[in-house]
């Protein structure tokens, strides 16, 4: 019995710990596992989650994207401001294209010119922050007319499920399929797992990395649309620090920063864990920042256990 439990813990340590945590909170706070609270948590994590979907592709391809936080800020400002100027339809199109362009720039430098991903996206973080201030003139923007269908993305709902959750779930399903079942997804794994072998197999690693960054820009644009619609405005600091939270979610799910392994399902799990930890601790009466301490412990433990399990398997 204890042996089985040890094996279970080693293989699914993270899930077991998470389940224990859920049970613990559920006992302490009745409101925790009610449908409305669960939906509320999911709604809260959907923006981080949306960004994490694209970043997962970048990380599985063995790269990093630290620019998504400031990209979110810029794109939120753009979508809000352009909605006021053009109306929602065109604004959303412009935002998606802008996200794609920002991702393409990262992809060009990291993928095609093979520059260090950390520095390129760090430079992009700084550059986009500047661009945001230049665009907004330093002041916050607000949606002038709150009655258009633009409000639907952040505030609407479908069959009682909040719209952000619907968008996040659909995107996750589509991208899980793309990563797991398509040529592109397979190429991502190959490039992240062994770039040389992928090249010898006729796969153009430069193009694959480029595409991964484009996707990351695109999911960040969708996140920005949800954000703009929910807040009905945009501040110049709205996405600050998100890049690290997004990475934390991806890592927490168990996707390795070394590339070549991971999945969308894991990322959704990781992001959801971040949300439920935050919510559970709040319901138990802890201040919100206690979640950060818990996240620290969980990241270290989860990755450590995962590494240990992999080492054990290779040796066995």
């Amino acid at each position: 019995m204890s042996l089985h439990f040890a094996a279970l813990l080693r293989r699914h340590g993270l899930l077991v710990a998470f389940a224990l945590f859920l049970a613990l909170v559920a006992v302490q706070a009745e409101a925790f596992l009610t449908p409305s609270n669960v939906l509320d948590v999911l709604r809260q994590v959907s923006i981080i989650g949306m960004m994490a979907l694209g970043v997962t592709f970048v990380v599985v391809a063995g790269r990093l994207d630290l620019s998504v936080g400031s990209m979110l800020t810029l794109l939120t400002v753009i979508v809000v401001d352009r909605t006021n100027a053009f109306g929602p339809g065109l604004a959303i199109l412009v935002t998606l294209l802008a996200g794609l362009a920002a991702g393409a720039w990262n992809g060009l430098l990291v993928g095609v010119f093979r520059l260090n991903a950390l520095i390129v996206t760090l430079a992009m973080l700084s550059f986009l922050q500047g661009l945001t201030l230049a665009y907004s003139g330093g002041s916050n923007v607000n949606v002038a007319d709150g009655t258009t269908w633009f409000a639907a993305f952040g505030r609407g709902s479908l069959w009682g499920i909040p719209a952000p959750v619907v968008i996040f779930a659909l995107s996750a399903a589509v991208l899980a399929f793309v990563l797991k079942r398509t040529r592109f997804g397979r190429a991502i794994f190959a490039v992240g797992g062994n770039e040389t072998a992928a090249t010898y197999s006729g796969i153009d690693a430069r193009l694959v990395v480029f595409a991964a960054y484009c996707l990351s820009g695109l999911t960040t644009a969708i996140a920005a649309i949800i954000m703009g619609s929910r807040v009905m405005g945009a501040q110049n600091t709205i996405g600050q620090g998100y890049e690290l939270t997004v990475l934390a979610g991806v890592i927490l799910g168990g996707t390795s920063l070394l590339g070549g392994s991971g999945s969308i399902g894991r990322t959704v799990l990781g992001v959801a864990m971040l949300g439920f930890i935050q919510n559970g601790l709040l319901l138990m009466g802890y201040p919100y920042y206690v979640q950060w301490l818990v996240t620290w412990g969980i990241i270290i433990l989860a990755v450590w256990i995962d590494l240990g399990a992999k080492r054990g398997r290779i040796l066995a």
Partner: peptide, 24 residues
């Protein structure tokens, strides 16, 4: 190990890697 295989992937995925178009 360096040029031939993606060690983390299974045998099936390694075999079809150069021919993804044929298997999709």
């Amino acid at each position: 190990k360096e040029q031939g295989l993606v060690l983390g992937l299974g045998g099936r995925d390694n075999i079809t890697l150069p021919h993804l178009a044929r298997f999709s």
